[in-house]
Amino acid sequence: MIKQVLFIQGGGNDGYEADAELAASLQQALGNDYEVIYPEMQTDDAAPDFGWLRQIGREIAKLGDDIILVAHSLGASLLLKYLSENKTAKKTAGVFLIATPFWNGKQEWMQGLKLQPGFAGKLPENSRFFFYQCRDDEEVPFDHLAIYRNNLPGASFREIESGGHQLNNDLHLVAKDIKNL
């Protein structure tokens, strides 16, 4: 049976196009036993979370059990927010978060993106969490990984020397972790 992998894109005006290479890399590395589902997130600038939480919920609802969730950048932070603020009836086998920003500013636009205090205790039980961050990420500061490490000591953290924000569009490391679930 083919396993479904939901991939949530990063943000920005060309986020969907930029991350299409990541999704394709993941599909290639996983092979035919997996199906990478890559929906385009529509941005609603009037919504505090850009309308992505509702869309993420709809996409998760379409999947079968033992779901595998992968997300990049803004999408990774909003997937984590969604999972910590919403209950899903589906068992989550693994959550793979790439270049995940930790929103902690006071700017108005950022408030709908921030995780709630105690978010780690509200995540799905018995789910494995993996974080990936390149030291030379030009978009998300590398020290954001340490914030997640402090909040989620049971998660796995992959520190990558180089590859920038897009991990050189090569997700073989993520695919390896998915296959080892």
Rank of each mutant, 00 (worst) to 15 (best):
Leu145Thr: 06
Phe142His: 08
Leu97Pro: 00
His165Gln: 07
Asn86Gly: 01
Leu181Lys: 06
Gly64Gln: 08
Ile68Glu: 03
Val5Gln: 04
Lys62Asn: 07
Asp19Pro: 11
Leu152Val: 09
Ala29Tyr: 08
Ala175Cys: 02
Ala120Tyr: 10
Ala146Cys: 04
Phe102Ser: 00
Leu115Glu: 12
His144Ala: 12
Asn13Asp: 14
Arg149Asp: 08
Glu59Gln: 14
Gly15Glu: 03
Phe130Pro: 00
Lys62Val: 08
Lys114Gly: 11
Glu40Asn: 13
His72Ile: 14
Pro141Phe: 00
Phe96Arg: 09
Leu145Gly: 03
Thr100Trp: 03
Ala29Lys: 03
Pro141Arg: 01
Arg158Glu: 15
Thr43Phe: 12
Pro153Val: 12
Ser156Val: 15
Ile2Val: 15
Phe50Asp: 06
Pro153Gly: 09
Ile56Tyr: 07
Trp109Gln: 08
Lys179Gly: 06
Asp66Tyr: 11
Arg158Asp: 14
Tyr16Met: 02
Gly12Ser: 04
Ile37Glu: 07
Ser127Cys: 09
Pro141Trp: 00
Ser73Tyr: 02
Ile178Asn: 03
Ala18Arg: 01
Phe131Met: 06
Ala146Gln: 13
His172Cys: 05
Gly10Phe: 09
Ala99Ser: 14
Ile56His: 05
Leu79Thr: 13
Trp103Gln: 01
Gln55Glu: 08
Leu123Met: 10
Leu79Asp: 07
Tyr148Pro: 07
Thr88Ser: 10
Ala93Ile: 02
Phe157Asp: 14
Arg128Phe: 12
Tyr148Ala: 10
Phe102Leu: 01
Val174Tyr: 02
Tyr148Cys: 09
Gly57Ser: 05
Arg58Thr: 12
Leu26Asn: 02
Lys90Gln: 14
Gly121Tyr: 03
Pro153Asp: 08
His144Trp: 03
Leu173Asn: 09
Ala76Thr: 05
Leu79Gln: 11
Leu78His: 04
Ser25Thr: 07
Asp177His: 07
Leu6Pro: 00
Val174Leu: 04
Tyr34Gln: 03
Arg135Asn: 10
Lys176Ser: 15
Thr92Arg: 07
Glu17Met: 12
Asp49Leu: 01
Val95Thr: 13
Leu69Ala: 05
Ile8Gln: 11
Gly64Val: 01
Asp177Met: 08
Ala18Tyr: 00
Arg135Pro: 00
Leu6Phe: 04
Glu125Lys: 15
Ser162Ile: 09
Leu167Ile: 09
Met41His: 10
Leu22Glu: 05
Ile2Gly: 01
Ala61Glu: 15
Leu22Asp: 06
Arg135Ser: 06
Leu173Glu: 14
His172Arg: 13
Leu74Gly: 00
Leu30Tyr: 14
Phe130Asp: 02
Arg135Met: 14
Ala89His: 10
Ile178Leu: 04
Ala155Phe: 11
Leu83Met: 12
Leu113Tyr: 11
Ile37Phe: 01
His165Ser: 09
Glu17Pro: 00
Gly15Arg: 09
Gln55Ile: 06
Glu108Gly: 03
Gln27Leu: 04
Leu79Met: 15
Asn150Pro: 02
Gly164Cys: 07
Gln166Trp: 10
Glu35Val: 11
Ala29Val: 04
Asp19His: 12
